[in-house]
Design a binder for these strands. Structure first.
Length: 478
RNA sequence: GCCUCAAUAGCUCAGUUGGUUAGAGCGGCGGACUGUUAAUCCGUAGGUCCAAGGUUCAAGUCCUUGUUGAGGCGCCA
């Protein structure tokens, strides 16, 4: 059969009267006559109208949802109502059958949980087609945003030797035989005999490496997989996820917040402009689902309205201290409705507090900054008050923390004493300290959880539904 | 890691105080149908009630343990 024309092109250009060939997968077969074929290039399918007499009954029997087909014929204006054009097929080939007795994706409503167990096939549904097209556009938009601003894409290593970052539990990387590892004379596993001659792990963050590059290239960003061996069971955690980490020399905490807010708005706007059909479907599907819920659990806004609202609003920017004041004076705190009642300054904010600030008090994205130094990482710049550090977290409705970042401590002595306080081994991170020794300067950066961004933009409540093959504790299928 | 809930047909679920042969919708299969929109109509098949143990005359239903899933918390992005 001839080369195919993509269905998105057919629908966009509508070359009526021309003979074209399309190839894709059957979504439905109606009235023994109409085949909805989707090739993934567009949310919409193309209706193929077959001539039953010209097809063998053998071929007809093979047309079922999920089958791969090719059709050649004349594009015509549709006589029916649901579509502008359709393809009158003269030839139809079934490339691959899909036995309806066993094919799990039938034209009916399936739950997200069921489709998650069939993650290899869920791309063929409307919902996941839309999600993964949007995921692509979003990752493209990230590169576009940074490229337009003269950032360099830095490929930070996946395998790292430092286990000193304190960013979470790590996955060990080894080629040693677990049943029979080489031992030292005192009976310990001899890591000198391991592949790299030392203990290695999968990266938990590209930040430290990004800092090295930023202090020469000026502004860089990483965008790659990140691994955390935390035993997290929530709808917003994965063991393998993708993170975007810009790092900019000479930026202070305020520049950092500006960059993050600009980026988030750019991404939201990009998706609104480029993924309209997919977004509209997800918007409608969510609306339908929400209408089943009790009134107090329904969101105030639909998906698209929520995204547009985010674009129009300046994000609220408040210090940790101001946040504590708001929370101390809040109804749920006074009435002890919080599981963790805020007693005073210094308390770590729980997700219920973050959710109150974002969803009840401000009702828009919130940037919290200047946290107590005791609850934050060693590399964050200590303020003059010597009590707080220039950390910032961006909180989104429904998602929680979507970005975490800071201005970095560029003063060698202060950094060293912070590392000492927090038991971070300095010898191992000599290269990180060298940056403060030679040509140190103020610099800032943050990490964006890419899947959390996809979650926000698609309105998916579970992070496992916005990554093709989710890795979570006890699950690495596919 | 902690807490809560769930598991019944391919899917989504119902199944009363423990009581005869386990129910529906969708999907499947067979048939009808040349303007359908997850088509419709008629007919039909389909079950190790998550697993193991226990209580009982009797367990889908009660108890214990385990497995898997969902939600919440912590860790964070």
């Amino acid at each position: 059969m001839e080369k195919r024309t993509r269905i998105d092109q057919v629908l966009a250009t509508k070359p009526i009267g021309e003979i074209i060939t399309v190839k894709g997968w059957v979504r439905s077969f109606r009235n023994n006559q109409f085949i909805a074929v989707n090739d993934g290039s567009d949310f919409d399918s193309l209706q193929i109208v077959i001539n039953r007499e010209s097809l063998s009954s053998d071929t007809l029997k093979k047309i079922h949802p999920g089958a791969a087909v090719g059709a050649k014929g004349t594009l015509t204006e549709s006589q029916g109502r649901g579509q502008a054009v359709e393809l009158k097929a003269d030839e139809l080939i079934v490339y691959g059958e899909a036995d309806p007795e066993t094919y799990p994706i039938q034209p009916k409503k399936h739950t997200k949980e069921f489709l998650r167990e069939n993650a290899h096939l869920r791309f063929r549904t409307n919902t996941f087609g839309a999600i993964f097209r949007i995921r692509h556009e979003l990752s493209y938009a990230i590169h576009k945003f940074f490229h337009e601003r003269k950032f360099y894409y830095l490929h930070s290593p996946i395998i790292t030797a430092s286990d000193a970052e304190g960013a979470g539990e790590m996955f060990r990387v080894t080629t040693l035989d677990p049943n029979n590892p080489p031992l030292t004379t005192d009976g310990q596993v001899d890591l000198k005999k391991d592949f790299f001659g030392r203990e290695t792990n999968l990266t938990v963050s590209g930040q430290l490496e990004a800092e090295l590059a930023a202090l020469a290239l000026g502004q860089v960003y990483t965008f790659g997989p990140t691994f955390r061996a935390e035993n997290s069971h929530t709808s917003r955690h994965l063991a393998e996820f993708w993170m975007v980490e810009p790092e900019v020399a000479f930026n202070d905490i305020n520049d950092n917040m500006d960059l993050a807010e600009d980026m988030l708005k750019y991404l939201i706007n990009y998706v609104l402009e480029h993924c309209r059909k997919d977004l509209q479907f997800l918007h409608n599907a969510a609306e339908k689902e929400d209408s089943q819920k009790p009134k107090n659990q329904r969101p105030d806004m639909g998906l698209i309205d929520r995204l547009e609202f985010c674009l129009e609003q300046d994000f609220a920017r408040i210090t940790y201290t101001e946040a504590i004041d708001i929370l101390m004076n809040s109804k749920p705190n006074k009435k002890k409705k919080f599981n963790y009642v805020i007693e005073g300054w210094g308390a770590d904010l729980q997700s219920e507090h973050e959710r109150y600030l974002v969803e009840k008090h401000f009702k828009k994205p919130v940037i919290l900054y200047n946290y107590p130094k005791d609850i934050k990482s060693f590399y964050m710049k200590v303020n003059d008050d010597n009590k707080t550090v220039r950390a910032m977290d961006i909180l989104f409705p429904g998602i929680g923390e979507i970005i975490g970042g800071s201005e970095r401590e560029e003063n060698l002595d202060v950094l060293k004493s912070r590392m000492k306080e927090m038991n971070i081994p300095m010898e191992e991170l000599y290269w990180y300290l060298d940056i403060r020794k030679y040509g140190s300067c103020p610099h800032s950066g943050y990490g964006l959880g890419f899947e959390r961004m996809v979650q926000f933009v698609t309105g998916m409540s579970n992070i496992r539904d916005v990554i093709p093959f989710p890795r979570t504790p006890g699950n690495a299928s596919f």
